[in-house]
Design a protein around this nucleic acid. Sequence first.
DNA 1: CCGTATCCCTGGCGATACTG
DNA 2: CAGTATCGCCAGGGATACGG
Lengths: 110, 110
Amino acid sequence: MRTNSDEEQCLFSIHQATQVLGGKWSFVVLGQLFCQDSQRFNQLRRNLDNISTKSLTDTLRHLERNGVIHRKVYPTVPVTVEYSLTEKGRDFKNVISEMRIWGQKWGSNM
Amino acid sequence: MRTNSDEEQCLFSIHQATQVLGGKWSFVVLGQLFCQDSQRFNQLRRNLDNISTKSLTDTLRHLERNGVIHRKVYPTVPVTVEYSLTEKGRDFKNVISEMRIWGQKWGSNM
DNA sequence: CCGTATCCCTGGCGATACTG
DNA sequence: CAGTATCGCCAGGGATACGG
């Protein structure tokens, strides 16, 4: 039988996952990084349908704070910044992957 | 090598999935229905930390329109309504499941 | 019981301009 | 190049009251 705490813990985990992700762009940003890890700021921006700089920085900062991605600065001129996935981020690939499969399977019809 | 359309299709599928889900409550509502399929309105509401009626109805309508859940009305007095998962909805379990695993693994630390 | 209807309001997001 | 700084909007969500 299912106990109450089972349910609660299940929902809590899901809730937590959504909190770590934050905004609506996180999925697609992570998806982009899975397609090609270690991308630069404007590279991401171009690949993401011209997301506004604010939304992109907000999303990246949020993901960084939550340990999902890593920000590395190269002191070139002009400066170069590369975003890559942490282990926690790479581990999220299973979720994104399942989401992609589902999106492809059920995308156009019902 | 990876082509441009690969990337685009990948991102498109993810984007589509997020569109089908809609708001922030969808994940947890679906999670609840996976815990126990076929639940009634107030039953869901109580299980979901007293989500407002508006948010719940909005979420349920959205998911229904997108063929993820099914709404069945029993003409009792007072009326009884049960929400259950469609095949499309049940198929989403893989995503939720991976999300739960990830949430449990990485929930508390980084 | 299962919602709809309303009001309100916050914060997420986009657009733009500007800096190191 | 990689952002920060502002402003303004408005959809999404909460609270409450009411209707079938």
